[in-house]
Each structure stands twice: as C-alpha cells, then as structure tokens.
Amino acid sequence: MKEMMVILLSAMLTDNFVLAKFMGICPFLGVSKKFDSAFGMGAAVTFVILCATVVTYPIHHGILVPNGLAYLDTVIFILVIALFVQLVEMILKKSIPALYKSLGVYLPLITTNCAVLGSAVLNIDNDYTFIQSIVNSIGAGLGFMLALIIFSGVRKKMEYADIPETFKGVPATLIAASIVSVSFMGFSGLFS
C-alpha cells in the first residue's frame, strides 16, 4: 500500500508530467485559460491515460513480448490512444457539448499528447506490475490535471496584471509556466 502511495504521489508531484518532465505542454498552454476547461481537459486526459494503460499493458505483456515484437510498442500504443481519444470525443459531444466546444481542437490533440504515450511507455520501461501501472497512470493524469488547474489560476491573476506590451500574451504565459515549474522542483527528492 505504501509503495502504491509513493508511486501515485511521485507521479503527481515529483515527476509531474507537465512541470517536471515537460510532456503535454501544448494543452497545458492552450486549455489553461479557464478553470472549467482546464478541469475538463485534465479529466479527459486522465481518462485516456488510464484506459490506454489498462489496454496497452496486457497487449505489451500478453501479445507483443511473447512474440518478440516489443518494437511494435509505439505503433500499437498510438493506435490504442487514438481509439480512446475518439471515444472520449464522442462521449463528450453527446453528453457535455459545452465542454466539447470549449476544449476545441485540443481534444483530438490528446492523441498526440506525449504525456499519454509517455506514461504508457514509462510503465513498461519501469517494469511496473499491472496494478502499479494503473496507479502510476492515475497519478500522471491527476498530476496533469493539477498542473492545468494551478496554471489556470495563475493565468487568471495574470489577466489583471500590468504586463509590458512586449511580454503580453504568449511570452508572459511561458515565463509564468517556467516559474510554476520551478516551484514544483521543490518536491524533488521527497519520495526517494
């Protein structure tokens, strides 16, 4: 149990996918303008990461490794991820159209969000068991959501800030992102 907690919290905080590993920066900058869409995006990515892990782990250990085809990992994983992204898109379009609209182009872009592929591959690379993989991917997803939500708060404050003309928009956002990232460096070494 203790080991699981360590995996979960380290995936969320010390090895935060966005702020420590710099994966999934695109939606991190794109969808973090509003709290609602940040939360929705985080939930969607968490769902996709979790589903992808649940499916890719058995595929890797049950089909690919026995046949000596571990090199097919990336291709198959991307296929699985794309499948789940499409499913999430359909479900959202049907049940929460408002969220579907506010996520916009970033929803299909989860397919190319390296955080999703990254967590699936890292689970294999770290030789996690099935349960550990699931915990790790939940942690990765929650960490992604945490980063997005924290950053949406930062950006809300930034809207009222008096920023020099040159830095308005993307430059200021990137600087803010780096400062938030530095703050997460404080967690390093917490669980090792």
């Binding site: 046949n67 085809l69 097919l72 198959i76 296929l79 359909m90």
Partner: peptide
C-alpha cells in the same frame, strides 16, 4: 505475425469506433 497483430488491432479499433 507483426502485420497480423497490427492489422488486427487496427480492425478491432475500427469496429469499436463504428459501434461507438
């Protein structure tokens, strides 16, 4: 074998998406 596995996964995904 790799071709079959990859193709199988692709077809499976396609069918699932169609149903969904």
């Amino acid at each position: 074998i790799p071709a079959l596995i990859l193709g199988g996964c692709g077809i499976l995904a396609g069918v699932l998406l169609t149903v969904a």
